[in-house]
Design a protein around this nucleic acid. Structure first.
Length: 677
DNA sequence: CTAGGGTTAG
């Protein structure tokens, strides 16, 4: 559904006035205080200070050190601090607690909180007084190293020793809880703040609201949002952006737009984050034209798009298969002073891979290496997926070695992808060996790993091995999920072991796993294939009770079942009812329906549908052509078949078609056949 | 101390 606002943007931007939406506000730009200097220059500056005579006061040094640390050059900052023996107390330059705090912060970022605590020990040993920032930094470090428990212990200890926690101390812990998924504890801490000397502020509320949104707990998020406003804490652009992000992620455009108008009413301007989220949501829905309009709009009102903004747009084009535009946009980023991030490259690599251009994907990979953008784990995983999908799994299998040589550790996703590739290429013995080897590499197989093997066995008529793996996973303490059951139910059904399939489906429910759309589709497919259309019909009609809404796959299955049972009229009726169910027919739907019509000798109706699918933006595939040609042949209309082919086909499919036609054409048609080649 | 973009199975 297209909301009025986006229609407005799309149709004519000039009609958007500031009365309607919060975009056309004037923006003031903060001049960046830190100039764009690289690490080398900063270190040079630092050294020049150190050798000046007389030695400048310590704040001159800390200023540079904090800039270096802010640029994520943690090791460099620590090295400079060490070099001047600040921590051992330089005889000429007596460091302030600020220097120690910078050192602690750097160690924490380098995931060495233990060294941070060593600095703290030195602080007290030298008779310095740790300040609020010292403890806050350490608490943050512990939170960031998944040591939340220790962070709370430190908090309790310092409070017991008479330390007054600040709003930042609380905020750091709340953030830690939120990021670890324990929103509940974060809320309790927020409530504790109410009764403390520092009441919660905008940051604490926003943090929890964001966490709730990310976990799709919108009701609670909006409750807290209302509560904060009631308590006189005004939401800012961050609060709104978090909520809008959450709402967009569940396609609740109307609610998101309501918030946009509320922002306007409260005089809160959108920034690049807000715009990027909206733009990203549009791209994910394939609404690229609107996304483009939004980009122009943000530029027009003075919000500069950045790398993230462009990344979303590039991905949008990739999703539509418009790789040329994606590439152009990628190249244009440089002109817009937007640096390519590793994510920009990952998006492009995935785009090429998914559009069957693996060689382009590989060349982008080499390009990034040349541009000194370091490939990440995701880069490799994406490339491995691409290679596997292109059937080049031998090359993919080599990449974990390359990763390791670059200091990257393959993760469970890397291994699962390769495991899947081996299974898909019927290399089941190798897959099992690979499965064992990943354990040797210190990677514990996940449910997904088992599911992949179970699927591999099932699809290769080794259903007993699949069942064996199923019991093995439970023994190894890995609980099966819905996918596991669906895979097995499908495997057993294909093997004709319907009773066992039925048993598994009830076992799954008794284990508290809810059947999902795939479960239903699998069972419906089996019923239809086995001529049990009536059972399928009644199951189809009761899906709703389980809270599962039929999708296009479900309907395709039923339509196919009806066609196969000769109930072509019912099938066609269902086909016509798709849009009222909010469903779009896909190629498969058309193929099924056209085939059904052909077999019911309704050739003209089939042909009409064929023409209609094109008009509906659904392009025919090879199967469609084959079905049509077969239909004509069955009706002994070979000339019409040939005319049909000549009117619609190109090179590749032609060979198949010729085979199909061979032998069934009268001599004269054969002549037409060869002349049209 | 709070917000946006990239990866695996049915």
């Amino acid at each position: 559904m297209m909301h009025a606002f986006f229609v407005a943007v799309h149709v004519s931007r000039k009609f958007l006035t500031s009365q309607q939406l919060p975009f056309n506000r004037s923006y003031t730009f903060a001049v960046p205080k830190i100039r764009n200097t690289d690490l080398k220059t900063l270190v040079f500056k630092f050294n020049r200070l150190a050798y000046r005579n007389p030695v400048p006061p310590i704040p001159e040094f800390t200023k540079i050190l904090s800039v270096i640390a802010k640029r994520n050059h943690f090791a460099a900052a620590i090295s400079l601090i060490n070099q001047f023996d600040f921590l051992g107390v330089n005889p000429v330059l007596k460091p302030t607690i600020y220097v120690f705090n910078i050192a602690i912060n750097c160690f924490c970022h380098l995931k060495r909180v233990d060294f941070g605590f060593a600095v703290l020990a030195k602080v007290t040993k030298l008779g310095y007084q740790p300040d609020c920032a010292t403890f806050n930094t350490l608490i943050k470090g512990l939170c960031g190293s998944d040591k939340l428990h220790q962070a709370i212990k430190l908090f309790d200890r310092i409070v017991k020793n008479g330390f007054e926690p600040s709003v930042v101390t609380y905020g750091t812990l709340i953030n830690g809880f939120c990021k670890s998924g324990d929103t509940h504890s974060a809320i309790i801490l927020l409530q504790n703040m109410e009764t403390s000397t520092c009441p919660p502020g905008i940051i604490q509320y926003s943090c929890i609201i964001d966490s709730l949104c990310k976990r799709k707990r919108f009701f609670e998020a909006l409750k807290l949002f209302t509560e904060m406003k009631r308590k006189g804490v005004s939401p800012n652009v961050v609060t709104y952006t978090c909520l809008i992000h959450g709402l967009c992620s569940i396609h609740s455009w109307d609610e998101a737009l309501e918030l946009l108008s509320e922002m306007h009413a409260r005089n809160v301007s959108l920034n690049v984050h807000t715009f990027s989220i909206l733009l990203d949501a549009l791209c994910k829905e394939g609404r690229i034209t609107e996304a483009e309009s939004l980009l122009s709009l943000m530029i027009q009102i003075g919000v500069t798009p950045n790398t993230v903004t462009y990344n979303s747009l590039i991905r949008g084009y990739c999703l539509l298969g418009k790789m040329d535009v994606a590439r152009k946009l990628f190249d244009s980023m440089v002109d817009q002073h937007c640096a390519h991030s590793v994510i920009s490259y990952n998006i492009l690599i995935k785009g090429y891979s998914e559009n069957k251009k693996i060689d382009e994907a590989l060349s982008v990979f080499h390009e990034m290496c040349n541009e000194d953008v370091v490939p990440s784990l995701v880069t490799y995983n994406t490339l491995i997926i691409g290679l596997c999908q292109a059937g080049r799994f031998e090359e993919a299998l080599l990449l974990p070695y390359e990763m390791k040589s670059h200091g990257l550790t393959p993760d469970i996703s890397t291994y699962n992808t390769l495991l899947d590739a081996l299974c898909n290429n019927t290399k089941l013995d190798e897959a099992l060996k690979f499965f064992d080897s990943m354990i040797d590499q210190g990677c514990t197989p996940s449910v997904m790993s088992y599911n992949i093997l179970i699927k591999g066995y099932s699809e290769n008529e080794k259903i007993d091995e699949a069942l064996n793996m199923f019991s093995k996973m439970s023994k190894n303490g890995v609980n099966p999920n819905v996918v596991t059951y669906n895979t097995l139910i499908s495997g057993l059904s294909h093997a004709g072991r319907l009773e066992e399939a039925r048993m598994l489906s009830s076992e799954m429910k008794s284990r508290g796993l809810k059947p999902d759309i795939v479960t239903f589709n699998t069972i419906l497919n089996t019923l239809c294939k086995n001529g049990k259309l009536d059972e399928a019909r009644s199951l189809f009609n009761t899906m709703d009770d389980d809270g599962v809404v039929p999708d296009i796959v479900t309907c395709n299955c039923i339509i196919d079942g009806m066609c196969k049972s000769g109930e072509t009229d019912d099938a066609y009726g269902m086909f016509l009812s798709l849009s009222s169910r909010g469903l779009q027919p896909n190629v498969r739907t058309y193929n099924i329906m056209i085939d059904g019509l052909c077999k019911a000798s309704e050739l003209d109706k089939a042909n009409t549908l064929f023409l209609e699918m094109k008009a509906n933006g659904c392009s025919a595939d090879e199967i469609t052509y084959k079905i049509m040609v077969q239909g004509f042949i069955r009706a002994k209309q070979t000339t019409r078949a040939i005319e049909f082919i000549n009117g619609s086909l190109n090179g590749n499919v032609w060979a198949d078609m010729k085979k199909l036609l061979n032998g069934c054409c009268p001599p004269m048609d054969q002549k037409i056949l060869s002349s049209s080649n």
